[in-house]
Design a protein around this nucleic acid. Structure first.
Lengths: 214, 214
DNA sequence: ATCAAAAAGGGGGTTTTTCCTCTTGTGAGA
DNA sequence: TCTCACAAGAGGAAAAACCCCCTTTTTGAT
């Protein structure tokens, strides 16, 4: 009986090793390798031997986070099933992850037996969802106007990140090689997009939405 | 040969199980039980059979965090060795934990072999410190004016928290029933204390030091 | 090639923030 | 009682942030 191969993407080595141990202890699964972040995973995927059946994906990672990585996977390798493994339990994050193509969503606060059954279900049926997630999906389908889907381009993101530092806008303009007036425009545009009154509001938004990491 | 008993205090069940697995795989250690938070640990300790040789302690936990719990342990059970196990790597947190009585400080981003040698050293010598931590200790002892131990009174804390919102200082003054000019003084005093240039710096400080929760 | 939209830059204004220095009131300790 | 420290408050000015509305340049799609 062939075992399903699993890859773990998680930036804390001890945790990925620990979770790897658990996965290896399951009779139907074996760990193929561990990755520190999404970038490492996409690099690995260039070789066909490195393509697993299932990816256990953390969401908060430096370099390339779980949502981006999941998107990349569902475009390039749709047959690889992604299970999100995270501490975040807010609806917005879960929805983002599911839209990105995750086939399951587990909290780090679950029993290992639950992890095993989730892996089994995903391997067999292609999905695993807890009651909570199912309810969330239903809610998000009919009614409940979608408030997310605000999107920023690269420069806006850079601007937002720099706004979270002690730099003045003039310094930010300098760093971005733009005129201060242009940065003024970025500010106005972004403020309006996310509906905040001042830079403090922007900073809070950036942190809550994981654009900037304090 | 008797094994050393280890207790893991960590609020994410899957992680505590996973780390527990690893610890159980070490020849000289066995897991006694797992706790979700500090409160559970102190409850358990009312029975003598439940007192382990070593506690692996997460820092960020609800209910009773790692620092408080470590303080409690070093007062009531000084013979129990605490090893902090955390994602935080800022000097202030490390120092707080060491002052609370931790005998070692591990990042979750370490090899499991490092965990084993840390456990061994703590069991034998009563302490384990990485180069980084040792340097930090040295630095904190002589010279290097301690930037921690900054302390705020209630009003300052209120001011700081309100500064993390979109309110203007005038509005903050209103809410605190103070004159705007007095709030001005608070700002100047706090800015100087924590050595920041503007309100953004204050906000970041408040978040990093867990004064304000985004 | 053309037209529209998006990005970049700017003028000129008000408000808020930041930084100095200074005065007043108050309460604890010598 | 007399300081002395400290919280509260103020004046004034410069810098930064914020806001509207406008022009030019780039870019993208038809």
């Amino acid at each position: 009986m062939e075992k399903y191969s699993v890859v773990i993407v998680e930036d804390h080595l001890l945790l990925s090793q620990a979770i790897g141990n658990i996965v290896d202890s399951f009779s139907k699964f074996k760990v193929l390798y561990l990755c520190n972040n999404g970038k490492e995973l996409t690099d690995k995927f260039s070789s066909l031997q490195n393509i697993p059946d299932i990816v256990l994906m953390d969401i908060n990672m430096p370099v390339m986070n779980g949502i981006e990585t999941t998107k990349w996977l569902s475009e390039r390798h749709p047959h690889v099933n992604v299970i999100a493994l995270s501490v975040e339990n807010d609806d917005a994050t879960v929805l983002k992850m599911l839209r990105a193509g995750a086939k399951g969503y587990l909290l780090k606060d679950t029993e290992k037996t639950v992890l095993e059954s989730a892996l089994l279900q995903v391997a067999k049926n292609g999905y695993y969802h807890t009651k909570n997630v199912t309810n969330l999906l239903l809610k998000s389908i009919h009614g409940e106007p979608q408030d997310d889907e605000i999107h920023f381009n690269e420069k806006e993101l850079t601007f937002i990140k720099l706004s979270c530092t002690e730099m003045t806008y003039k310094e930010i303009a300098d760093k971005m090689s733009l005129s201060p007036k242009t940065v003024d425009n970025y500010r106005n545009r972004v403020f309006e997009k996310i509906d905040v009154k001042n830079r403090i509001g922007l900073v809070m938004y950036a942190i809550k939405n994981k654009i900037y990491f304090p």
